[in-house]
Amino acid sequence: MKFWDWKFTFEILPLLAKAALVTLEATLIGFVVAAILGLAFAIGRMFGPKWLAVPLAGFIEFIRSTPLLIQIFFIYFVFPEFGVSIEAMTAGVLALGLHYATYCSEVYRAGLANIPRGQWEASIALNMSPFHVFRDVIIPQAIPPIVPALGNYLVALFKDTPLLSAIAVLELMQTAKIIGSENFRYTEPITLVGLIFLIFSLIAAAVVRLVEAWLRRRIIHS
């Protein structure tokens, strides 16, 4: 048996490309969940009443300190126990989103903490409602500087999507494993999956660096 079979490689490439779409889908939806939930966590933890802020802080630490894989299993298996059926993809994306929301919330917290006190005081002086203060004054200033940090977590989330293979979501890793077990050849599919991840990560890292440089210029100019 050859070490590397090019014919086989080209046979499985379309299958992997299709699976890559599932991976991207999971990444994007997961990150949307993470970005929105993370902001809610950060605001709740920083500005919520104590009975909310303290347990929330504990919950965030808890999620951050425990394995994503177990969290995926938990969500996947716990819903049916309460009589609610859930698709593997939904459960996986929810777990990814929740896990990374806790990371994102720390980033948002740093961004919010960097808003000068004067901005809050000016908003109060203008008699704005808390909702409008956040929407129109605070968030637009807090978000741009933390975009690179959020971008890094987007890449990290992307690299964690293979965990969804554990609950049989047909993303890249799971597809590669199925191809491997059907053909008794794991070398090509798994190496290709690795390469696909490497290429995407390198591109994403370069984009994050570009955004970072662009933001730095913009912040210096203003």
Binding site: K159, T187, I190, L198
Partner: peptide, 22 residues
């Protein structure tokens, strides 16, 4: 550094598990 940071831990684990024997 780039390979191990750029790919996912699970892919690395599977690669060492399935491909190293080859």
């Amino acid at each position: 550094i780039e390979i191990f940071r750029g790919t996912s831990a699970l892919v690395q684990l599977f690669w060492l598990f399935f491909v190293l024997p080859r």
